[in-house]
Structures are given as C-alpha cells and as structure tokens.
C-alpha cells in the first residue's frame, strides 16, 4: 500500500457523501442517477483498496460485478427516464407523485 488504508476510506466516504448529497438534494432525475453512480464508484474504490490491502484479487472481481450491475441499472433507469419524460414532458421528480397516499 502506498497510502494508509484509512486515508483511502476517507476519500471513498467523501465521494460517497457527495453522491448521497446529489441524490438527496437534486430534483433532476438525471442528477439523481448521477449521484447513484458516484456512490457506486465510491464503493468500488473501497473494494479495490481492500483488494490491495490484503493482496487478494477477489475485491477487484467484485468491482467487475459492480460495473456490470451498474450498467444494467443505468440502462433500465435511463429507459425509465425517457418514458417518464414522454409522459409528463419533465424530469423533475416533484412531478411524479402518483404514489401519494
């Protein structure tokens, strides 16, 4: 390891927190998805760091799965965004409140 693992964790947490902020604060569906991407990447960073810490390949393998998962998620979500935009001509999450009780 070229840096202490704690520093790496701090970096990953920062990134994760930024992603979470994007998810919570932004009203644009696209931006929320971007926030999710950021969080997933932060998780990937921790996995790779762990892989380096214990010198095992498994962490990296998990990152590959993470990427596959992310691409699947993104393709579906973006298709949904297109569909929702078709319905309401907007991507503002406040417009989609049909689930209100």
């Amino acid at each position: 390891m070229i840096v202490p693992f704690e520093h790496l964790l701090v970096l990953a947490s920062l990134l994760f927190f930024l992603g979470l902020m994007a998810v919570l604060v932004r009203r644009n569906l696209i931006m929320i998805l971007i926030g999710v991407e950021i969080m997933l990447n932060a998780a990937g960073l921790v996995l790779v760091g762990a892989s380096a810490l214990w010198q095992q390949v498994d962490g990296q393998v998990l990152v590959i799965f993470l990427m596959a998962l992310t691409s699947a998620e993104v393709s579906i979500s973006l298709a949904m965004v297109v569909y929702l935009n078709h319905r309401k001509q907007t991507v503002d999450v406040r417009a989609f409140n049909e689930l209100r009780g």
Partner: peptide, 29 residues
Amino acid sequence: LGAPLVAAWEVIIYAGAIMVLFLFIIMML
C-alpha cells in the same frame, strides 16, 4: 492500488459507455 485491469474498465465502461449514454439521453431529451 494495483488494479490495472479495473482501471482500464473504469475508463472504458464508466467514463466511456455509461457517461456517453447519459450524455446521449440528456441530448435526446
């Protein structure tokens, strides 16, 4: 951190494919 292959895929899949997909959708809509 010793993961060259993952680094390459990060560039290809994330920075390449996924972000381009985002860009494409943003422009399309």
